[in-house]
């Protein structure tokens, strides 16, 4: 076998893997499995990105998704009833509509590239893609980059304000049970 065929084989392997694991996300009973199937789907996309020449983005996608999917699993187990899927169940609504919408969107999106003429300017595969990105980040896209920083700050503050129960404005109000011992003993140094 020669090299291009290896690329093709891997492309279809990752493509099939990504789609199948993506489908399994919504068919898994256990929430942990669902989250990790989504991770597998992202990892497959990461592989596709590498094959498309975006080595850095592909690996960064896997790096980011590892943490995000762990958080996903933790949160899902917290809030879903029957998180481990020991009682298999099927919690969907408007199922038929969803399936139709999904098929329709697939057909629309999949046919489109064959109908319209796409520009074909292949990536010259620069060796220093990451460096190029860095220059872009600090140069032309500087504003985008700094805006992202502020957005993330807003997200952090919003998250803390929404979820934290021990803010300056007092502890949980209802349904809470205070520990019987002194508060100082409970808190971290």
């Amino acid at each position: 076998m020669n090299a291009p065929s290896w690329t093709t084989v891997l492309f279809w392997f990752f493509a099939a893997g990504g789609v199948i694991t993506g489908y399994r996300v919504f068919r898994a009973d256990s929430m942990v499995r669902a989250a990790f199937f989504l991770l597998a789907s992202f990892a497959a996309t990461g592989g596709l990105l590498v094959l498309l020449g975006a080595e850095f983005l592909g690996m960064v996608l896997i790096l980011m998704m590892a943490g995000e999917m762990l958080v996903m699993a933790i949160i899902m187990v917290m809030y879903m009833m029957n998180p481990a899927g020991l009682n298999p169940m099927f919690m969907v609504h408007q199922h038929r509509t969803s399936v139709i919408a999904a098929v329709a969107s697939f057909l629309a999106l999949a046919v489109l590239p064959f109908v319209i003429t796409l520009p074909a300017r292949a990536n010259p595969r620069p060796v220093a893609a990451t460096a190029q990105l860095g220059t872009e980040l600090l140069g032309d896209s500087m504003l985008v980059f700094q805006t992202a920083g502020v957005t993330l700050l807003a997200t952090i503050v919003g998250t803390v304000a929404l979820t934290s129960r021990r803010g300056r404005y007092g502890d949980a109000e209802e349904g809470s049970k205070e520990p019987p011992l002194e508060e100082e003993a409970m808190e971290s140094p």
Partner: peptide, 22 residues
């Protein structure tokens, strides 16, 4: 086409799942 398939699965999930997390 692969992207469209992934997108369609996402559409299905977002429309059909009762749970907010899903």
């Amino acid at each position: 086409v692969v992207a469209a398939a992934l997108f369609a699965i996402g559409v299905y999930g977002a429309l059909s799942q009762q749970s907010l997390v899903m």
